[in-house]
Design a protein around this nucleic acid. Structure first.
Lengths: 194, 194
DNA sequence: GTCTATAACATGATAGAC
DNA sequence: GTCTATCATGTTATAGAC
């Protein structure tokens, strides 16, 4: 093992190769989970996409569920502090991003959250975090959290309609126009009033 | 078959019994599809819930998919005509209904639309219809359809957050309060402006 | 010894026999 | 209407390759 000290810089060690294979499997899994959701994605399909044997996938991740969990694990989105109007613009920008290419991990969670308990829990946590951040930045009132939740879930619905269902009315609209139409409504939602 | 002419008013004929069994299967299927979605619902579970043999389900509906299609078939929601403000109130009322008990057929479609192509198509059609109705009632402009689509998909997102994900921030809010907070924002969305 | 591939078993959808 | 057979899939156990 330690007899020959790095014969060539281009020769990967076994651990490196294994790590690379693992990463390849994770990438394929993320893409397929994003496209088809948890249930409709088969371990065999992931293996085929990654160019490995199906059993190898299990070797690496134990169960399909664990594979999903790791594939979906992502760094938390940046929490935004500042005044509410800036926050709304920030949210609209992130929606703008979302309406373009949502990352596969997020897509996978979005797509599976209605039919898979684990994905639902993951979504609950992620959305809860976004809601709390937004609520904290809103003017204090007893329905700040409610308003924040409505803004976030409304954006989820719009994203679903655009990205996952591809509703013609949304698919054909440019992202900046959507943001422009949405802005006054969201400002209205975040402004405290009874 | 036609020898004995209705021996008793309480004795159901074979076709009646078959029809009743079929209805029982459909009800069980609708409930299970609403709770677990298409994939996670097994024909065996539907059969067990209806108290029949699994093969009988196939005898009646051919495939699990066809069972889903028939279970989800529902009468179209009432198209609303009138002025936009009244329409917004009407939508909020329907949201109010939705936040209470959504019918199983709708729940089943909602839950499965992100992971099942057929359910997605069904949802696309149903939402498209709602969007078109609303757009037709909005003041004519080139983004009436966009605005209508945003209102409808936002409501879908809110419904999902409330009913399917049970986000704490929404779950704990009374429906009338949600409607009150939402009303100004939706009015803003439906009012033409650039 | 460590990585990979093959075989075996359980459950579910569906088709055909009875 | 019920029972049995076939096929796909998730998962585990076992054998083969380097």
């Amino acid at each position: 093992m330690t007899d020959y000290p790095d014969p060539a810089p281009t020769a990967p060690t076994r651990v490196e190769r294994r790590r690379a294979t693992r990463a390849r499997i994770l990438d394929s899994a993320r893409a397929l989970f994003a496209e088809r959701g948890f249930q409709r994605t088969t371990v065999r399909a992931v293996a085929a996409a990654a160019g490995v044997d199906p059993a190898l996938v299990m070797q690496h991740f134990g169960t399909k569920r664990q594979l999903f969990t790791e594939a979906v694990q992502t760094t938390a989105p940046p929490p935004g502090g500042g005044d509410p109007d800036a926050l709304v613009d920030q949210l609209l920008t992130s929606l703008d991003i979302k309406l373009g290419g949502l990352p596969d991990g997020t897509l996978a969670t979005l797509r599976s959250m209605l039919t898979d308990p684990d994905a639902a829990e993951h979504a609950r946590r992620a959305l809860g975090g976004q809601i709390d951040s937004l609520a904290a930045a809103l003017p204090h009132s007893d329905d700040a959290e409610l308003r924040a939740a409505l803004v976030v879930t409304a954006m989820v619905g719009i994203t679903i309609g655009h990205q996952l269902l591809a509703l013609p009315a949304l698919r054909d609209a440019p992202a900046d126009r959507i943001a422009a139409v949405l802005r006054p409504a969201f400002k209205c939602l975040t402004r405290e009033a009874t």
